[in-house]
Amino acid sequence: MDRVIEKVKKEEKMVIERSKMSVENLSAWFGDKQALFNINIELFENKVTAIIGPSGCGKSTFIRNLNRLHETISGAKVSGKVYLDGRDIFDHNCCDVVTLRRRVGMVFQKPTPFPTMTIYENVAAGIKLYGKKPKGKLDQIVEQILKQAALWDEVKDVLYKPGPSLSGGQQQRLCIARALAIEPEVILLDEPCSALDPISTAKIEELIHKLKQNYTIIIVTHNMQQAARVADYTAFFLLGEMIEFEVTSKIFTAPQDKRTEDYVTGRFG
């Protein structure tokens, strides 16, 4: 009896998927060059959404608009709307950039720990931006975050070594920890595994699985197996346009668009 109820609940949950971020008619430019054309997409809460597509199709540009990092490039322009919990992130009256970036964290392709900081300081860097914490409390948070990022066991004895002394995969998890430390709601991952070996990649994928219980995750990847493994939804981009957005299994087994099919079957790109 209990089991039946649980199953029903589960199904209910599937149905009421909540949109965490929703993107409407998003276009983006670098100077005169348009890189994104009228993107519309819903990013669901506690789901992993993968962005796939050939190199240069605008995947990075797209996710860099979700935390407004795109605008920091000189000459860059945007139009359209992006809502976070129903509020437009470009609307200056409702959200400022600092709060937005606190809520929408990001990890880059190349691991970028702050080179002159220790592992501990790297994790604490973001926390310190939002107010001083007593040392004891900070220690506690750093430990908890590193555990969450599945890095604690590997670094607990070397917390005061420089960040770059870690392996590439560890550095990337450190960057994930750094992003988690400011308690974001959404995490953007821009090809987080492309510089890593298979074992580190597996660790990060496992981590993504764990994290999605608490976060909304968007991951850019070149690796279609990876998208298939980690993502609930997948969006296919081509030449700055979003061609198809669907449940991951559908994208890979029954794509609607010919171009998606060509790409996922490896016929181009």
Partner: peptide
């Protein structure tokens, strides 16, 4: 490197904080 600055910006650092941090 530019990506260090962006890492700081992505944490919600202001321009000046980015300078201090990254």
């Amino acid at each position: 490197p530019h990506n260090l600055r962006e890492s700081a910006l992505a944490l919600g650092a202001t321009k000046w904080e980015t300078f201090k941090l990254a």
